[in-house]
Simulated assay, not measured.
Amino acid sequence: MEEKSTAFAEFENTTLTRRRNLLPTWIKIFLWIFLIGGAVAAILLMSGSFLTHISLSIYGINANHPYSMTGLLISFLFLYKGIVAYGLWFEQKWAVQAAIVDAIIGIGICLIMMVIIPFTFSHINFTIRLELIPLYFYLVKMQKIKKTWESL
Rank of each mutant, 00 (worst) to 15 (best):
residue 12 E to A: 03
residue 55 S to L: 08
residue 109 I to K: 07
residue 32 W to F: 13
residue 104 I to R: 10
residue 92 Q to I: 00
residue 38 G to H: 06
residue 82 G to C: 05
residue 105 I to K: 01
residue 40 V to W: 02
residue 138 Y to Q: 04
residue 75 S to W: 02
residue 136 Y to T: 15
residue 34 F to V: 13
residue 111 L to K: 06
residue 59 Y to I: 11
residue 88 L to G: 03
residue 62 N to L: 12
residue 71 G to D: 00
residue 95 A to D: 02
residue 106 G to W: 00
residue 94 W to Y: 06
residue 95 A to G: 03
residue 59 Y to W: 14
residue 36 I to M: 13
residue 81 K to C: 09
residue 24 P to H: 10
residue 117 I to E: 05
residue 50 F to E: 07
residue 41 A to E: 06
residue 128 I to A: 00
residue 96 V to R: 06
residue 142 M to P: 10
residue 106 G to E: 00
residue 69 M to R: 09
residue 15 T to C: 11
residue 130 L to C: 05
residue 120 T to E: 00
residue 53 H to T: 07
residue 63 A to W: 11
residue 126 F to N: 04
residue 53 H to C: 01
residue 74 I to D: 04
residue 129 R to K: 10
residue 49 S to T: 15
residue 44 L to C: 01
residue 19 R to N: 09
residue 98 A to T: 14
residue 110 C to Y: 00
residue 34 F to Y: 15
residue 8 F to K: 13
residue 6 T to S: 11
residue 107 I to M: 10
residue 85 A to F: 00
residue 27 I to Y: 02
residue 140 V to W: 12
residue 9 A to M: 14
residue 151 S to Q: 13
residue 43 I to M: 09
residue 103 A to E: 00
residue 65 H to S: 12
residue 60 G to F: 10
residue 34 F to P: 06
residue 140 V to R: 15
residue 77 L to Q: 07
residue 95 A to V: 06
residue 118 P to E: 09
residue 50 F to Y: 03
residue 18 R to V: 07
residue 61 I to Y: 02
residue 9 A to F: 10
residue 117 I to N: 03
residue 25 T to Y: 06
residue 34 F to Q: 08
residue 79 L to I: 15
residue 1 M to G: 15
residue 92 Q to G: 03
residue 61 I to W: 04
residue 146 K to N: 13
residue 76 F to T: 13
residue 61 I to E: 04
residue 108 G to F: 02
residue 118 P to H: 08
residue 13 N to R: 03
residue 42 A to E: 06
residue 91 E to R: 08
residue 108 G to L: 08
residue 74 I to S: 07
residue 68 S to L: 02
residue 69 M to F: 12
residue 44 L to H: 02
residue 13 N to A: 09
residue 130 L to K: 02
residue 76 F to G: 06
residue 64 N to A: 13
residue 97 Q to C: 09
residue 79 L to N: 14
residue 24 P to D: 09
residue 23 L to C: 11
residue 62 N to T: 15
residue 46 M to F: 11
residue 134 P to L: 06
residue 21 N to T: 15
residue 17 T to Y: 04
residue 145 I to T: 07
residue 68 S to Y: 03
residue 114 M to H: 11
residue 70 T to Q: 02
residue 142 M to I: 04
residue 41 A to R: 00
residue 6 T to G: 12
residue 151 S to K: 10
residue 1 M to F: 02
residue 81 K to A: 15
residue 29 I to T: 14
residue 49 S to D: 15
residue 120 T to Y: 04
residue 29 I to P: 01
residue 69 M to A: 11
residue 32 W to H: 12
residue 120 T to C: 12
residue 133 I to N: 07
residue 39 A to T: 12
residue 52 T to M: 01
residue 12 E to W: 02
residue 27 I to Q: 08
residue 16 L to F: 02
residue 117 I to Y: 04
residue 110 C to M: 14
residue 69 M to P: 09
residue 88 L to V: 11
residue 44 L to Q: 00
residue 9 A to C: 09
residue 43 I to L: 12
residue 73 L to Q: 05
residue 152 L to S: 14
